[in-house]
Amino acid sequence: MSTLAVTTTLNGETVTFLCEPHETLLTALRDRLMLTGTKEGCSNGNCGACNVILDGTLVNSCLVLAAEVDGHQITTIEGIAGPNGLHPLQTSFLENAALQCGICTPGFIVASKALLDKNPQPTEREVRHWLAGNLCRCTGYDKIVRAVLEAASAGATKE
C-alpha cells in the first residue's frame, strides 16, 4: 500500500497530510494532525463522538476515509470557536451545565452547529431527532437539548 498525500481545508486553513489508503478521517485528524478534540467512541458510526462538518454536511469522521477529503472543507470542534471567543453554542453548553464527563461534548456541539446552520429555530422534537445520532451516557440529554434550544433562541446562526 502506498502512502497518500491529501490536501484539504481544515478549520479554514489549507493543510496537507500523509495517510494510508485505509485510514479514516478520524484517525488522520487525531494521529496525523494532532486534533484530538474529535473523539472516538465506537468507530462504526453509532455514537457521534467523532462528528465533523464536511462541506456543510454533518458526518461521522470514523466513516469517512482520510483520502476522500482531498480538496474538501472540514470543520472540527477546534474550528467552532471564533477569533472573538466561544461560539454561542459553546457558551450555552457551559451556562446550561450541558456536559458532565465531556467526552461526547465536541460531537454534540459540532452536530448542533450543523443543525442550527440549516434550521436556526428548531423545535425540541427537531433537536432530539437531529441529535439522536449522538450518544451521551451522563446527562440524560435534558440539559443538552435545553442548551441547543437556548442557543437557537439567542440567535446562534451561521458564523
Partner: peptide
C-alpha cells in the same frame, strides 16, 4: 468547561 467545549481537554486516548 472551556477546555471541554473546545476539544482541548485531554482524555485517555489523547
Amino acid at each position: 468547561g472551556v477546555d471541554k467545549v473546545t476539544g482541548r481537554a485531554l482524555y485517555g486516548a489523547d
